[in-house]
């Protein structure tokens, strides 16, 4: 467990590549320390389910942990945690996509977590945004996701699995030991938050502080994502 509060340099944290899935319209592969996530985007295509006529596009997301990705083997059918993450990612990306440009169509995002070592939700949101940018679907901004875990006085950005699950217990009766985690999706150019989940027990000032720290964590990932997209653009242009 990290003993010191350190906002690590962004290059150490995130590895990002596009074009991981050649069949998909857009795709991305993200490595956040030991967490590995792959994302594929299909669309805009015909609305699969029999839904009402929608003059805007619909964003649908399916997140799945590979059965071997976590410490305990997961089921091959999507369970409630994966469904919840999928819904959060849809809500995080809906403000980002230019829905009015693609009437009566559906944009499908498929995310597979190949290895789970913490910070999955933040990494998945970033992977999905990079895949959307790679796909040529018009978007307002690239959403960046980041997780933060607060244990006692320590703030840990991008916690590993052990850090997420570990708790500091009260050593004395009256002591309130804070155990909180927060995941945020930020749209850097627009300075808007498109997803926010926080759990724990904190007073209002601490809540504000960890939200601000997490936002800063998102901002620090932005240059890595920008460099990845720029590099993939140059590769595509040189191939044509």
């Amino acid at each position: 467990m990290r003993k010191d509060y350190q906002l690590p340099k962004f290059y150490d944290r995130l590895v990002c590549r596009t074009g991981a899935v050649s069949q998909a319209v857009g795709s991305a592969y993200i490595e956040l320390r030991n967490t590995k996530i792959i994302c594929a985007v299909y669309g805009p295509r015909e609305v699969a389910k029999k839904q009402e006529f929608n003059i805007q596009a619909t964003v649908a997301c399916e997140l799945k942990f590979a059965t071997f990705s976590c410490r305990r083997r997961r089921r091959h059918i999507q369970d409630s945690q994966e469904k919840e993450y999928s819904q959060i990612i849809v809500q995080a990306l809906q403000p980002v996509v230019r829905l009015d440009k693609y009437p009566k169509s559906q944009i499908d995002i498929f995310i597979t977590v190949l290895q789970n070592d913490g910070s999955v939700l933040g990494g998945a949101i970033t992977a999905a945004s990079v895949a959307l940018a790679d796909s040529g679907i018009e978007i307002f901004d690239v959403a960046i996701g980041c997780c933060l875990r607060q244990i006692g006085d320590l703030s840990l950005i991008d916690p590993t699995y052990l850090e997420e699950e570990g708790r500091l217990n009260n050593e004395e009766e009256d002591e309130i030991v804070t155990n909180a985690n927060v995941t945020i999706a930020l749209l850097p150019s627009l300075n808007q938050v498109s997803a926010l989940i926080m759990n724990g027990e904190l007073d209002v000032d601490s809540t504000q502080r960890i939200i601000k720290d997490c936002l800063e964590g998102c901002i620090r990932i932005y240059p890595v994502v920008r460099e990845c997209l720029t590099k993939s653009l140059e590769e595509k242009m040189s191939r044509n």
Partner: peptide, 17 residues
């Protein structure tokens, strides 16, 4: 093509040149 307007500025909405 590939841009949008917000608060009197033009922003990109695609990855490109």
């Amino acid at each position: 093509l590939g841009t949008y307007v917000r608060q009197r500025h033009i922003y990109a909405s695609l990855v490109g040149y």
